[in-house]
Design a protein around this nucleic acid. Structure first.
Lengths: 342, 342
DNA sequence: TTGAAAGCGCTAACAA
DNA sequence: TTGTTAGCGCTTTCAA
């Protein structure tokens, strides 16, 4: 077959090998070549061989953009995350990405940086790409955002929180429950002067409120709360403990919004010769891998990010392929992993 | 204008609002509506107003997939990372993502999990999506991979390493230089019994070799090297120090492949009552944010991941928009940040 | 400044 | 099993 050179380049287009080129080389119609590539079972052995041969010789890679346009299936899933630097989300995204990839989907990543303006722009960019599904970290609070997502008709999964009114699917857990449970846990250990270090976001706020209420209910008075805002660093944890000690010198337990803040509190406690857990109990949030191996090992709230990512991927793929998801609202819960810091 | 309801749904397609619908509503041709949306300056004020009004009323979001197919510009950049769980890459990816987004590009993320098979599949999936650029963490070593990338004609940037034969653009630094420099640094501090804890990858290997050679040149004998493979956890750092101590009880300095491993070594040293830095000096790699605030603060090799991400984004966008990049091969260097652990 | 025509590269629908 | 036709929703090209 020496008609290989017949391939002509048109004035438009990328100039790359197309399905037409492959079909011509194999001596079949484009649609037959398409079937040979995408559903080999539908095609005779002879045709399959010839097409595969042509693909080999040309180095043809199917253009999924064109395929997506024709079939209205992009095989693209978009994920919205506040920031991948926040390690508590990283394993979730990794698992989401890998599970999707194994199912033949690609992940498009968007970061809001906890900014509403950016989130708005991101949503527009995402919907414009017509992904087969959208993964949201957290609940979509903005009414405009909800409306747009609903109008787009794209399957959406909200995560990392609970709400009675999800846009579509949901996998999360109760932040209020966590606040309450950790407070009860610490009080059951005999701690009486509780403090809390929180980041600025809404979910941390709800944990903080529930924590305070649980403490108030037992008549242990006000909880000293330090809000570190966006700064989710070890350093801000250290500073936070200093601020707490200035206000409540006899503090005996601190619940932190993240494991990193907890490490900061622990570092500062050690620097100030306050033995952990004897003098000060510390509870983190997230259970990132390394906190189990610190000395002392950190007690923390475990969130199964991998399971959220995997389950979300499965839901999104099911919906993308036209299957209905029967129980698409899941409370995945949480657990307190008790280690040496309490 | 009550011809809004004239919009008919064809049997194919997603059923979403299209540019045609908007054009019809505004009483102009589709191409005019396209210009009003994409280059408002090319259109009369009256037309602009009518089209914008129609966009508002319909909630139209342009389909970038179709636009991309027509213009052969997807405004998508693909990034290949070993794993986003490895924190040393996270800031780079975050910055890459944000810089691209601000320039109007979306990031598609792919993880190889350090697996060659996965990398191969990922490359195929990526090229099939015809992104306007490809970001690679590391150098593409596989010949097949290089060939495919070259054949695709897509701008490629390799990072995090140096090579005389990049596929296209490159931003990196020398791992051999790092190994040598850290060895010299430790020896200049009077350390004589050096050890090294490394992960399994090729770049860590090159740092290790150069480190050993520099030590051998000064006649200080064999360096004890522990390879922890894929396990980049704090725990494996702890185990590694135990193994080193079994072989070289009088070890006085350890260079680690990552800050996390270094934290593990430090944790184990504290657990064994070996004062850091008096008895044992520790050097990490990566300078992830929190190691500056630990006690003792970690001396480490700083890699400017944010700059790599930002510069790479700029290069890729330049090339995507048809500009040529004049010096597309950059050695970004590294630095040793001296803190309390040495 | 505006528009008509002709694709981009692929697949759904229908027919043979 | 294979092929023909007609789009998917947009933009390029060329013309008015």
């Amino acid at each position: 077959m020496n008609d290989k050179d017949k391939i002509k380049k048109s004035r438009r287009g990328s100039g790359a090998i197309t399905l037409r080129d492959v079909a011509k080389l194999a001596g079949v119609a484009p649609i037959t070549a398409s079937r040979a590539v995408n559903s080999p079972g539908q095609v005779s052995a002879e045709v399959l061989r010839r097409v595969q041969d042509a693909v080999q010789r040309t180095g043809y890679v199917p253009n999924r953009v064109a395929g997506g346009l024709a079939s209205s299936r992009s095989r693209l899933i978009a994920a919205v995350v506040p920031s991948i630097v926040v390690s508590v989300f990283v394993e979730m995204i990794e698992t989401l990405n890998n599970t999707l990839f194994d199912a033949g989907y690609q992940l498009m990543l968007g970061q809001t940086g906890y900014s509403a303006v950016r989130e708005e722009a991101l949503l527009e960019a995402i919907i414009g790409r017509r992904p087969d599904g959208i993964f949201l970290t957290g609940i979509m609070l903005s009414a405009r955002g909800r409306t747009r997502l609903l109008a787009s008709g794209i399957p959406v999964i909200e995560t990392w929180d609970l709400t009675p009114t999800p846009i579509d699917m949901l996998i999360g857990f109760s932040h209020a429950d966590i606040g309450r449970t950790v407070a009860d846990f610490l009080m059951s250990k005999g701690r009486r002067r509780l403090a809390l270090v929180r980041s600025g976001d809404e979910r941390a706020n709800r944990r903080a409120i529930a924590f305070s209420e649980a403490v108030a209910q037992r008549g242990l008075g006000e909880v000293c709360i330090v809000n570190v805002g966006d700064a989710r660093s070890l350093k801000s944890g250290r500073e936070a403990l200093r601020r707490i000690l200035a206000q409540v010198p006899d503090v005996d337990a601190v619940f932190c919004s993240s494991d990193l803040l907890a490490m900061g509190v622990m570092t500062e406690a050690q620097a100030q010769n306050m033995p952990v857990p004897q003098r000060l109990a510390i509870v983190g949030f997230g259970d990132v891998p390394y906190v189990a191996d610190m000395v002392p090992a950190l007690t923390t709230v475990h969130i199964n990010g991998r399971e959220i990512g995997e389950q979300a991927a499965r839901f999104l793929v099911d919906r993308a392929e036209g299957r209905t998801v029967d129980r698409p609202i899941i409370d995945i819960g949480f657990s307190i992993i008790e280690r040496d810091s309490t």
